Amino acid sequence: MRRIKYGLTALTLTAIMGSSQALAHTPLCACYDNGDGTVLCEGGFSDGSSASGIEVSVLDANGNALMEGSMNEYSEFEFDKPKGEYSVMFNAGPGHEVEISSADIVE
C-alpha cells in the first residue's frame, strides 16, 4: 500500500477550512426601556463571549449618529432615550452588526 507523507487532499483542506466556521460566533444584543427616560442594551455572542468594548451607536430616523459609545465591562450600554424614532447599532465588525429599532425597545 502506498502512503502519502506530505500534502493535503482537497477533502482534508475542505474539512479544516469548514471547521473554522463552526467556531464562529453570532452577535447578540437586546435593549430595554427602563421606564425612567433611559434605555439599557445588553450585548454578547452566541459562544458566551463578552461584548465589552464593542461599539454602540444610537441613530436617528435618518441614520445620523445621536450618540456613540461602547459596551462597558459588563457588556452593557445605557443611554438617555431620544425623542422620536431611533435605532441602536451594535457593531462588532463587518457581518457582525445588530440594529434594533426603537419600536422594538419596550419596558
Score class of each variant (00 low, 15 high):
R2M: 11
I4V: 14
K5W: 09
L11N: 09
T14P: 03
I16L: 15
I16K: 07
I16D: 07
M17I: 15
M17V: 13
G18R: 09
L23W: 07
A24T: 12
A24N: 11
H25K: 11
T26A: 09
Y32V: 15
N34V: 10
N34R: 09
G37E: 04
G37V: 06
V39M: 03
V39Q: 00
L40D: 06
G43I: 00
G43W: 00
G44P: 06
F45G: 02
S46L: 01
S46M: 06
S46H: 07
D47Q: 12
G48K: 10
S50A: 12
S52P: 05
G53C: 07
I54S: 01
I54W: 00
V56P: 00
S57A: 10
S57C: 09
S57M: 08
V58L: 03
L59P: 00
D60M: 05
D60A: 03
D60V: 03
A61L: 06
N62Y: 05
N62P: 02
N64D: 14
M67Q: 11
M67T: 15
E68Y: 04
E68M: 09
M71Y: 01
M71T: 00
E73I: 12
E78Y: 02
F79Q: 08
F79D: 03
F79T: 07
D80Y: 12
D80G: 10
K83N: 13
E85I: 10
Y86S: 05
V88N: 01
V88C: 01
M89D: 06
M89R: 13
N91S: 09
N91I: 05
A92R: 06
P94N: 14
P94Q: 14
E97A: 10
E97P: 02
S101I: 02
A103P: 03
D104C: 06
E107I: 14
